[in-house]
Structure formats: structure tokens, C-alpha cells
Design a protein around this nucleic acid. Structure first.
Length: 926
DNA sequence: AGTGTCTGCCCC
DNA sequence: ATTCTGC
DNA sequence: GCAGAATGGGCAGACACT
């Protein structure tokens, strides 16, 4: 077989031929004239048009073997033929005849016909070396004409609105393709200097275009400006006040492209093959083996292997690195640009892979990266299940737990006590990075994991790290007492971790993997990996609260053995929030319910209960033991000793689901009173007395899950309720009253009643529904009270995190103090706005910044928001002395300005009213 | 001893 | 907790 | 419809600092 290597370019050692090398070489094939392919080689093979374009880009002297397309020639004893690649004008593939073997190197290529490039041609070959920039299944481009139509509409609408459309595309290739697309639609393109220059060369070589003009600053009105991406935010464009900028790039199919490129629109017109075309091309060429190059080379090779084609990645790159290197405003504006970064970071990928596998933890991190790189859930599951299958029985539970973003199992009460502060100090300590450099990196990301990656990169000397060692690290972090001791342990590890490993340690520490995969998908991956039924895996995980243990059972094919039993808490059934009684009723009326187990058609009554504002709790009782678990399956028995004490008086062994509320006959108690008890440590008798005396509680039961050895999960709510009503209750235990309703009006009435009783709202349940742990299904609904809203003005804005890293998504807002006329902060909110609105506000706040503190900026108070909330109460958190519970943005009030916002006095009135409502009525339970 | 900062599968 | 988004 | 991500306030505890 022909030997193929990669070292900043493809190299065929037996032929001593380089294919698109980055550095100057004695003898090379140059596929096309993009800048990253231009180096002062001594002797090159090129197509005629590429040779002409090269002349203008790199004038010097060299020996050129200019070959026409489709003719077999001999150069230095090598038989070869160039074929059009369809990528840009003059782009070529290189086909080699090597004894009885053939090899096809595509260079950059495209299958779809372009208007400014030769149509691609191919031949069958034994070895195919292909470019795979878009080698991920999410990169499927819409029909070209459709995209062109969108671009034309964008331009027309922009001009009609009196603004200037600006299209960004690489000056060689993309710009000319855009130009051709605008032919005959009645628009006048205006070309940026570099685009103009390239276009003139095209014309000299025989290509013709529609009428266009060269850029003139005072003549842009009514024209369509075509610029290279680097012109975005340049001086030239900033001089055009009213414009709309669109990026023209295959990357536009990424949903966040608009934010990444900081443009108004993005259209997926590409000069590369999309995923489907890459696959088709392999089918056409029928190779015995494939080498992939650039972009998602590894993922694509993997897909090909799944299709039975022998395939290997020559370069390895993933989306995360792309975003990282791109963060410093040098976004991957063009595939070519990003390819150069790839090559720099890759040196002999085969050797790299070998060294990777020596560090088990790095292998884990890489799987995480691969999962992050694809948005397709099935693909994520596939990647993870393939990996899980390779693990030993010792590694498996650890890794599956990591993939749920935890160091320890859910049911494991151990905590790490390591947060953002410790992580930051540790990263600095391990790398000796100076403050300024660190903060500039951190400010850029707003994501601790990514920050860790960049801070550690090239500042550590990595040593292999096994999975078992990683487990030991987390265990010792838990054992260490105090932030200093923890920081020391962590710092020692960071200093011998690769950047990628450090990033994943941080992700686990912060409990947030951010790879688009959570517990649900991990369960699916386990089911797939070990070929066991998904519902059994879910069931086992629900019962065990331990995904690692679940995976271990799956490996041994024993998942079915897990079952509901005392002192094994299960996740609780959740309710879907709905805005009105009418919408709730519609849900029940609309159900055409065949498989849901509902008999509403014959029994059109639904169950209503008050919704209590307390802590969801599951109580397990046997003859000699009582435990209480929180919604997160945490054991909270110690917090409520008096309930435990009373629960021994039950006659039955049982598991009940309910809510613990602060409650005393004739006293007004709220969730805040209850919360005072929550964090308290439970050691010693005096706590018992004090806690109980401070804030008395009651357990309001509303469901029965298990009774005297029998699981009731698969029986109807009606039946469970009937059984619950027969249970004799000890003091401090109550049963939530349930009533039937047959209309929206009855629901509305019950809701008002619940509010009068100081309760949070109303629960609406399907009486025939089964108990579905951990799911927010269509069987339970909740209706919560709507308080008055406040009109507030935004006074500060902050960059968000993760995918909101580049937008100002976090708003601090204020009310007016009438007595002083000043603005006083009252809260923060993000939720309620769409991405588009956030993008718009981001732009506005950037232009109206009063003081820029990096990620945080004070802004001119001119955006008025209507905010909703569940309650308002005194607090020291904000200057106003008030705080909102569950604040969310209802609307941007464009009709209002800072003079018409609500006052502090009004907010105080609302708070007083809130408190008064609660004072006037005592809560009702049964 | 008093105060401030950080943390929490915190609770909602 | 709430809300939006992509699958 | 679901799962995921990115966000809110308040509280007690633990430790570090003064």
C-alpha cells in the first residue's frame, strides 16, 4: 500500500511528493490558490488558473508544472492527472497512478455546481485522501437556489429599509460565487478592494460577471456591499451607520452562527461539500481506504468505518478547539482560516493518538469533546455507548457518574466543597500565570471549563492519569478539610494535567459538563452499550439513585433486579406548569387518550389539590426505622426529628409522597420560615427542641407509593388516594384535601380558594394516571399565582456563560426612589427573552455603556423591562432593600422610558400587600 | 470574637 | 424555581 | 414533548481574615 503521512501537509514518502503543505518544500501539488496553500516551494504542480492566481498572491520564482484538467502527464517519473475540484476557480484534485494502485487527493472540493468554479469530476481510486471540513451530519446545506433566494431577499429588504446590505465572503472564490448569484436580480454589487482585485483576474481568465462597481465610501446607498469577513467591524464598515451584515459561509448552519460572527444574518452558501456530499463522494470513488483531513476528520472517519469503509483521520480537530482559538475575535470566518489553526496544533496525528491512550482520563475527556461536537442526540448516545463498552468493570461506574456531571453518585451524600473561587486560585497556582493574563482569558470565556483549558494549555507537564486515580482525587478532595487543603490537592493535580484533562476535572467539580448530554442520555447509552431495555435501566437508576451502580448492573445483565423498596428513595413525579385554568381544562379535554391509561372519556372529572409552598419530601417508614428524602433523593431525616418521631406512630410500613410545610394552627408561616431550618446541622438534642420551637412543621401527604410490601407505582392515582385515605395519621401529619372538577370554571374557583388559603396555587391531576417518577408528564399540572408586575429600568448588563458568552444576557434593574429621584437596584433576571431579543439588547447596551468593567458594564438606563415574580420581600441583597422571588422578564417595554418606571414606594406597597395577604388568613390544609 | 466570603447534586 | 431552544 | 442550558433569591455552615 502507498504510504501516507501527515505533517503540516500530506506527504507521500515513496514518491517524495507533498500535497498542499504549509511550509516551503522542494516538490508539491497545490490544489488551489487560497492563501493558506501558498508557500515558496521550489517546484509545484498546479492547474492553469491556479497558476495565474498564485502569480498575484506570491510573485517570486519557482518551477511550475501547469497541467490541464483530465490529461495524464508524467512529472519526475510520476504519472498523474488533475481533475476539477469544484471548490473555487481553478481548484484541482490530484489523481496518481502508482504502479497498479491509484490514489485520489481531493484538496478542498464541492459536488454542487458552482457558478464560478469548474464542475467537479472524479475517478475511482484505491486510496482516497479527502477534505472533511463539514464531516459532521449536522452540516447539511439547504438547496443552493433556496439559499441564494434568501440572500437576495435579505439584500432587497435591507435596501427597502434604507440600509446597506453587506455580504461577507472570502475574497477569492466565495465573493465571486456571491457575485454570480446576484446576476439578473436587479441589485448592484459593490466590491471591496481585495474582492475587486480577484474578480478582475477571473475576468482576465474568461469568466464574466454581472455589472458591479468598486467600493466608494460615499456611494454605498442602494448597493450590495461584498467584503471579506475580515472587514467586519473594520473602520471601513463602521463608517456605514445603517447597515445589515450577513455572513456567507457553510458554518451558517450552526444555530449560533449569528452570534459567533457578530452579524445580523448568516446564510449557508459554501464552497465545500456538505456531509451528504462527502458520503456520496466516497460512494462514487469506491476507495479501499480513506484518509480524512481537516474539520471533523475523526468523526467522519468514524462514520465511514461504521459504513464498512476503512477510514482514518490524518488531522484531528473538534469544535471545542475551534471555538477556543476563535474566541479572541479571530472567529473562523472561513474554513481556510481555521484549517491553518488545525494544522498548527496537529503534529503527526498517529503518534498523538498513541500517547492519548496512555492517559485514561484524557481518553474520557476526548469522548466528552466528541459528544459536545455533535448536537444529534443519537450520535451522542452512540459515541458514549461505544466508549462504555471498552471500559473495565472498575472504570464503568466511575465514568458513567462523571458523565452525569458528578464526582459521586446521586445517592452518595458526599460533597466536595470546591467551587469557583478555589478552582480559580488553583489554576493560577498550578501555572504561575500572571493575573492580567489569567483575567484576560477568564473574561473571554465566562466558562470555568474553557478557562481552565486555555490557562493550562502549554503551561503544565502532563502525566498519564488513570480513571481510578481520578476517583481517588475526588475522594481526597472530599476528605480534605478547608479550602486551603483542597486547593493544594487540586493544584498538584492541575500541574501534571493536560489542558483537556484539567478542563474536564473542572467540569466535574462544577457539576456541569455542558456537552449537551445529561442523565437521560447516559441511561440511553448504557442501555445501548450493554443491550438491555432502556426502561429497565431508567427504572434501576431511579431506584438506586446511582448511575454507576446501574451501569454495573447493566454490564452483568442484572438491571431488572432493582425494585422499589423501603429506604431506596425514588425521584418524584413532577407537574407541568400551565398559565390558566382554561388551558389546564383544554389539556384534559383534548386528550384522545388511548395509551395513557386515562378513562376521562367516561369519567370526565379531574382531581384538584392545593399546591403547598414547602419542601417536597418522601417519607419511608418501617416498623423500626423512618427516613425522609428530599426531591433530590437527599436524606433530610435529620432536619425534621419531630416528624420522624411522630412517623413511628403509623400503623403501616409505607412510602408516602408529600410536602413538608411550616405550619402551626393560627400562625402565619411561609416558605422563608421553613428555609431557616433547612441548612441546620442535625446533631444534639437541643437542636430538636430549638428547631421545632422555632419553626413548627407539618407533613402534608398527597400520594402513597408503597404499602406493606406492595408497590403502588403502577396503580391509578384514584386507587392510591383511596388507599392513602385509609391510613391512620399521627399528629403533625395531614392529607392534602382532594376535590373533583368537571370544568374550567371549577378549576378557576378552586384556584382562587387555594390562594385565599395562602397556598401557592393549584395542582391538577389525572385520577387514572400512574405514578411516573422523575418525569414532568402530561398527567399532573400546576397553576401558580401571578403577582403584579413591575416596570423597571436596566442599569447594568453582564456577559452570560456558555453559549451566551458573547452576549449581554444578564440584566440588573432598578426602580426609582421618589424621594431622591435616584435609581435603586431591585433584582436581576435573564429568563423570558428570546435569543433574538438578547442579541438586540446586547447591541444596544454595547453602544450605551457608561462604565465598562470587562464582563460587567453599567449602562445608560433607557431600556424598560416589565418583570414578573412570585413574591417580593425585604432583602439586603440590593440597594432598594427589596428582592424578588423567581424574577423573569415579561416584556421589553419599548413604549416606556426611564421616566415612567415604577417607584420604590410602589414596590414597597406590593411587598406590604404580599405580607398582608399572608397575615390575614391562616393556611388551610385539609 | 466578630466579620466577610464562599459554598451548596441547597431549597424553591 | 422559570424560560427558551433544538431535536 | 422532551431534554438541555442558562439563569433568579435566601439561607445556614464553614472557614479565613482581622
Amino acid at each position: 500500500m502507498i504510504e501516507v503521512r501527515y505533517e503540516r501537509g500530506v506527504y507521500l514518502p515513496q514518491q517524495n511528493l507533498w500535497l498542499d503543505p504549509w511550509d516551503a518544500k522542494p516538490f508539491a501539488f497545490i490544489s488551489h490558490a487560497h492563501n493558506d496553500h501558498v508557500a515558496p516551494h521550489e517546484e509545484i504542480i498546479v492547474s492553469q488558473r491556479t497558476a495565474r492566481l498564485l502569480k498575484s498572491r506570491l510573485p517570486g520564482r519557482r518551477i511550475e508544472h501547469i497541467l490541464p484538467f483530465g490529461e495524464k502527464r508524467r512529472v519526475h517519473g510520476l504519472d498523474l492527472m488533475l481533475l476539477p475540484a469544484g471548490h473555487i476557480f481553478g481548484s484541482a484534485q490530484c489523481f496518481l497512478f502508482l504502479g497498479n494502485e491509484t490514489l485520489l487527493y481531493t484538496g478542498d472540493f464541492k459536488l454542487r455546481p458552482g457558478k464560478s468554479a469548474e464542475q467537479v469530476q472524479w475517478r475511482e481510486a484505491d486510496t482516497l485522501i479527502m477534505e472533511t471540513t463539514f464531516g459532521l451530519s449536522r452540516y447539511r446545506f439547504p438547496p443552493t437556489q433556496q439559499v441564494v433566494d434568501q440572500i437576495v431577499s435579505f439584500c432587497r429588504e435591507t435596501i427597502e429599509a434604507g440600509e446597506v446590505p453587506v455580504l461577507l465572503g472570502y475574497s477569492l472564490g466565495k465573493a465571486q460565487e456571491i457575485l454570480c448569484s446576484l446576476d439578473g436580480v436587479g441589485l448592484t454589487p459593490m466590491l471591496h478592494g481585495s474582492v475587486y482585485q480577484m474578480t478582475r483576474i477571473y475576468e482576465q481568465l474568461g469568466q464574466s460577471f454581472c455589472k458591479y462597481v468598486r467600493y466608494r465610501a460615499n456611494d454605498v446607498a442602494g448597493k450590495v456591499l461584498i467584503c471579506p469577513p475580515s472587514a467586519n467591524r473594520s473602520h471601513m464598515l463602521e463608517r456605514i451607520p445603517r447597515k445589515r451584515v450577513a455572513m456567507i459561509s457553510g458554518w451558517a448552519v450552526d444555530p449560533n452562527a449569528v452570534y459567533r460572527y457578530q452579524v445580523d444574518a448568516a446564510f449557508p452558501l459554501s464552497d465545500h461539500a456538505d456531509y451528504d456530499d462527502l458520503i456520496r463522494y466516497v460512494d462514487f470513488v469506491r476507495p479501499r481506504r480513506v484518509f480524512t483531513l481537516h474539520g471533523f476528520a475523526a468523526a467522519f472517519a468514524c462514520d465511514l468505518r461504521a459504513r464498512g469503509v476503512e477510514a482514518w483521520a490524518l488531522t484531528e480537530q473538534n469544535q471545542m478547539e475551534l471555538h477556543l482559538s476563535a474566541a479572541d475575535n479571530a472567529l473562523p470566518v472561513d474554513p481556510c482560516a481555521e484549517v491553518s489553526r488545525t494544522a498548527e496544533s496537529t503534529q503527526g496525528s498517529f503518534h498523538k493518538q498513541v500517547s492519548d491512550t496512555r492517559s485514561e482520563f484524557l481518553a474520557f475527556a476526548k469522548v466528552g469533546e466528541a459528544i459536545a461536537a455533535t448536537p444529534a442526540k443519537l450520535e451522542k448516545i452512540r459515541l458514549l455507548s461505544d466508549y462504555l463498552r471498552e471500559l473495565t468493570s472498575e472504570q464503568l461506574p466511575v465514568i458513567t457518574t462523571y458523565f452525569t456531571g458528578r464526582a459521586f453518585a446521586q445517592s452518595d451524600p458526599r460533597t466536595l466543597q470546591v467551587g469557583w473561587s478555589v478552582i480559580v486560585r488553583t489554576l493560577q497556582g498550578a501555572t504561575k500565570i500572571d493575573d492580567a493574563a489569567f483575567h484576560s482569558i477568564a473574561a473571554r470565556h465566562g466558562d470555568t471549563g474553557k478557562t481552565a483549558f486555555e490557562v493550562l494549555d502549554a503551561r503544565t507537564t502532563p502525566r498519564p492519569f488513570t480513571i481510578v486515580e481520578s476517583r481517588e482525587l475526588f475522594e481526597s478532595l472530599h476528605r480534605a478539610r478547608g479550602p486551603l487543603a483542597k486547593a493544594q490537592l487540586l493544584q498538584d493535580r492541575f500541574s501534571i494535567s493536560s489542558a483537556r484533562e484539567g478542563q474536564y476535572i473542572v467540569k466535574i467539580l462544577t457539576g456541569d459538563l455542558r456537552i449537551g448530554l445529561r442523565e437521560g442520555l447516559v441511561e440511553e447509552a448504557i442501555a445501548k452499550a450493554f443491550d438491555v431495555p432502556l426502561d429497565q435501566v431508567k427504572q434501576a437508576n431511579m431506584l438506586l439513585g446511582d448511575i454507576g451502580e446501574t451501569a454495573a448492573l447493566a454490564l452483568r445483565n442484572e438491571v431488572h433486579q432493582a425494585q422499589l423498596s423501603l429506604f431506596r428513595p425514588i425521584k418524584c413525579m413532577l407537574a407541568t406548569p400551565l398559565p390558566s385554568a382554561e388551558s389546564v381544562w383544554q389539556r384534559f379535554v383534548d386528550v384522545g387518550d388511548v395509551d395513557g391509561g386515562s378513562a376521562l372519556a367516561t369519567q370526565p372529572a379531574i382531581f384538584l389539590e392545593d399546591k403547598f409552598d414547602g419542601i417536597r419530601a418522601q417519607l419511608h417508614r418501617s416498623a423500626d426505622r423512618v427516613e425522609i428524602y428530599s426531591r433530590d433523593l437527599r436524606r433530610i431525616t435529620g432536619q425534621f426529628p419531630e416528624l420522624v418521631d411522630q412517623a413511628t406512630n403509623f400503623q403501616e410500613k409505607l412510602i408516602v409522597d408529600g410536602e413538608i410545610i411550616a405550619f402551626e394552627e393560627g400562625r402565619r408561616l411561609t416558605f422563608f420560615d421553613l428555609q431557616k431550618r433547612l441548612g441546620r446541622k442535625s446533631d444534639g438534642e437541643d437542636l430538636f427542641a430549638r428547631a421545632a420551637a422555632d419553626v413548627p412543621v407539618a407533613f402534608v401527604a398527597f400520594d402513597l407509593l408503597w404499602l406493606n410490601g406492595e408497590s403502588l407505582l403502577r396503580t391509578s392515582l384514584r386507587e392510591r388516594r383511596a388507599r392513602l385515605s385509609e391510613v391512620r395519621l399521627p399528629p403533625q401529619f395531614q392529607i392534602a384535601k382532594v376535590v373533583s372538577a368537571r370544568s374550567a370554571a371549577e378549576i378557576e374557583q378552586a384556584f382562587r380558594q387555594a390562594r385565599r388559603h395562602l397556598n401557592e396555587g393549584l395542582m391538577i391531576k389525572d385520577p387514572e394516571s400512574l405514578y411516573l417518577p422523575g418525569t414532568r408528564g402530561m398527567f399532573w399540572f400546576k397553576l401558580k399565582k401571578e403577582l403584579a408586575t413591575l416596570d423597571v429600568v436596566v442599569v447594568a448588563a453582564e456577559l452570560g456563560h456558555g453559549k451566551r458568552n458573547n452576549v449581554l444576557s444578564d440584566y440588573t434593574f432598578a426602580v426609582r426612589d421618589e424621594t431622591t429621584g435616584g435609581l435603586l437596584r431591585i433584582g436581576k433576571a435573564y429568563s423570558g427573552l428570546t435569543d433574538a431579543e438578547i442579541a438586540e439588547l446586547t447591541e444596544h447596551f454595547k453602544q450605551n455603556t457608561l462604565a465598562d468593567h470587562g464582563r460587567y458594564r453599567e449602562v445608560k438606563p433607557d431600556i424598560v423591562l416589565e418583570v414578573a415574580f412570585n413574591s417580593i420581600q425585604p432583602s439586603a441583597r440590593h440597594a432598594s432593600g427589596l428582592a424578588l422571588r423567581f424574577p423573569r422578564i415579561k416584556a421589553i417595554r419599548r413604549d416606556k422610558n426611564v421616566d415612567s418606571i415604577d417607584t420604590l414606594q410602589y414596590a414597597h406597597e406590593l411587598a406590604a400587600r404580599d405580607a398582608q395577604i399572608q397575615q390575614s388568613v391562616s393556611p388551610e390544609v385539609a
